[in-house]
């Protein structure tokens, strides 16, 4: 399957899963489970930053339209799409390693810990920016803080279990081939 088709399918599946399964689950008023941003986490390494941000905007905007108040998720997705390349540069085990694999995973980032940091930081950024924009209208700092921490923990668990459930086979590629 080509990378384009694969990512289009992922986009649709993540949005549908988010809207029709996760949004229907009411865990607690402090916890909003999110998984749809894994689409951005899984985009190929070689994608240009501009395209990353445009895709992030599109993803957030699509989800916003199901929630009938545009802007919130698009802002958060654009932020993590912008930060993603910086993080990858910091975490990648050796220079040029991003050309060996197609997209971020346990293997290509060199273990579970770097991947946890990668997804954890992005989720924390996404949630804090999203809840900040939402809390801005209500103005309650502690509520915002606790909600961000708890939701991030739940999202991280979701991301890990998804990663373990659906193993993505990625061939190792070398520059010489």
């Amino acid at each position: 399957m080509s990378s384009l088709v694969k990512n289009i399918l992922r986009f649709i599946l993540f949005i549908l899963f988010q809207v029709y399964i996760l949004d229907k689950i009411r865990l607690h008023q402090m916890v909003t489970p999110y998984i749809y941003f894994m689409f951005i986490l899984w985009l190929p390494f070689k994608m240009k930053r501009g395209w990353l941000m445009l895709l992030g905007f599109l993803l957030g905007f699509t989800l916003d339209n199901f929630r009938h108040h545009p802007g919130f998720h698009s802002a958060a997705c654009v932020l993590i799409a912008y930060v993603r390349p910086f993080l990858i540069n910091l975490l990648i085990p050796q220079e040029g390693a991003e050309t060996n694999y197609e997209e971020p995973s346990f293997k290509s980032l060199g273990g579970i810990l770097p991947y946890l940091i990668y997804s954890g930081v992005l989720i924390l950024l996404h949630n804090s920016w999203l809840f900040f924009l939402e809390a801005w209208q209500f103005g309650n700092f502690w509520y915002f803080f606790v909600k961000t921490i708890l939701s991030t923990a739940v999202a991280l668990m979701l991301v890990l279990s998804t990663e373990l459930l659906f193993s993505r086979k990625q061939p190792f590629r070398t520059n010489t081939a």
Binding site: F57, G60, D64, P70, G71, F72, S74, A75, V78, L133
Partner: peptide, 11 residues
């Protein structure tokens, strides 16, 4: 720009 568009949409 994209952040600006998003925040404009919210407001």
């Amino acid at each position: 720009t994209l952040q600006g568009i998003s925040i404009f949409l919210i407001i």
